[in-house]
């Protein structure tokens, strides 16, 4: 981030910059690869079409919330309302899609809800200058309450064909993820996307250089909300119904995935590919624990330990050169 490529040399600098960004996450990629190989050896089903589909489907919502959290952390924000927003997306999808609005209407409402909630949160945090942790913690109550109002107990329905398309034996989840990553690359090339890192790393300097800091941060919150409700839609399609508290675990997991992926809390540090790799690692660990017969409770304990270990060990190495 220290170099600002001029228009002429931008093309020549693109790959070196990308390569330098990979340095920080190289060891993470190796760990993820090792886990993938181990997983493939333990459960050869991964390399069949349906095995691959199922695996990407279990990873997909976590990947989305990791991106949702990462984009906020890159701008120096954070959200503790991701889980509640995922739940809200799930109940909206489950109550609208089988109704008169149909799938298209349901998707539109989910998208609008995500963008709207995100933009409102961003406005409160950025324009009214309230601490993000507290706003999103309070927001999680409001959003979770709204989810409870829409669907007080698990229910609703998702059209069967949509569930089959998204969570059946098709690689739709993987294709969607690739599309989302490409869209992210495109977004980074827009003025708002370019401002993202600058706004996170040095807001005052960026502001004085004419970077639209506030707009970039509000936009980040809006995109984060969209990704979260999108994850909720997918979870609803997976389970075939809505549940007002289904997303709760995603709050911690999104932060854990982003931090595993090397995203810093102070803003401007880390890359989206790191966050995605972090979410893949977390998803692999959860799958492996499930297959090894850990009870959900033991998974809690193991997850807590693994997260601390994974975050602490690289830091520890840094301290003692």
């Amino acid at each position: 981030m220290s170099m600002v490529p001029s228009a002429k040399s931008a093309g020549a600098l693109y790959w070196p910059v990308q390569a330098r960004r990979n340095i920080g996450v190289r060891s993470l990629f190796l760990v993820v690869l090792a886990f993938l190989v181990a997983y493939g050896v333990l459960f050869p089903g991964l390399f069949t079409a349906s095995g691959f589909a199922k695996f990407t489907q279990s990873w997909f919502p976590l990947a989305l919330v990791a991106m949702a959290q990462a984009i906020l952390m890159l701008t120096g924000g954070i959200s503790l309302a991701i889980g509640a927003t995922v739940s809200l997306g799930a109940v909206i999808a489950a109550t609208t899609m089988a109704g008169p609005l149909g799938v298209a209407g349901g998707v539109a409402i989910v998208v609008l809800a995500g963008l709207g909630i995100g933009a409102a949160t961003g406005f409160i945090v950025v324009k009214l200058r309230l601490p993000a942790i507290v706003v999103t913690l309070a927001g999680s109550f409001i959003i979770g309450g709204a989810a409870l109002l829409i669907l007080p107990r698990p229910g609703g329905a998702i059209p069967a064909w949509l569930s089959d398309l998204l969570a059946g034996d098709t690689p739709a989840a993987f294709v969607l993820l690739v599309v989302i990553v490409l869209l992210w690359k495109l977004y980074l090339a827009t003025p708002l996307g370019l401002s993202l890192y600058a706004a996170g790393e040095n807001p005052v300097g960026a502001y004085r250089s004419g970077v639209p800091v506030d707009a970039a941060r509000v936009a980040a919150y809006a995109i984060s909300g969209l990704l979260s409700t999108g994850a909720g839609l997918f979870v609803a399609a997976q389970t075939g119904s809505g549940d007002p508290v289904i997303g709760t675990a995603f709050t911690l997991n999104s932060i854990a995935a982003a931090v595993l992926g090397g995203i810093g809390f102070l803003g401007g540090q880390g890359t989206m590919r790191g966050a995605l790799a972090g979410s893949l690692l977390l998803s692999l660990m959860i799958s492996v624990m499930f297959f090894l017969g850990f009870t959900p409770v033991a998974q809690y304990v193991a997850q807590g330990l693994i997260i601390i270990g994974a975050v602490a060990i690289p830091q520890f190495r840094k301290v003692q050169p």
């Binding site: 954070i78 942790i133 911690l252 932060i255 854990a256 931090v259 809390f265 809690y300 304990v301 997850q303 807590g304 330990l305 997260i307 601390i308 975050v311 602490a312 830091q315 520890f316 840094k318 301290v319």
Partner: peptide, 16 residues
């Protein structure tokens, strides 16, 4: 270990 307080205490909460 220089773990960020938010991660450390959230993980501790999950563990507990």
């Amino acid at each position: 270990l220089r773990v960020h307080p938010m991660i450390m205490t959230l993980a501790m909460a999950t563990f507990l």
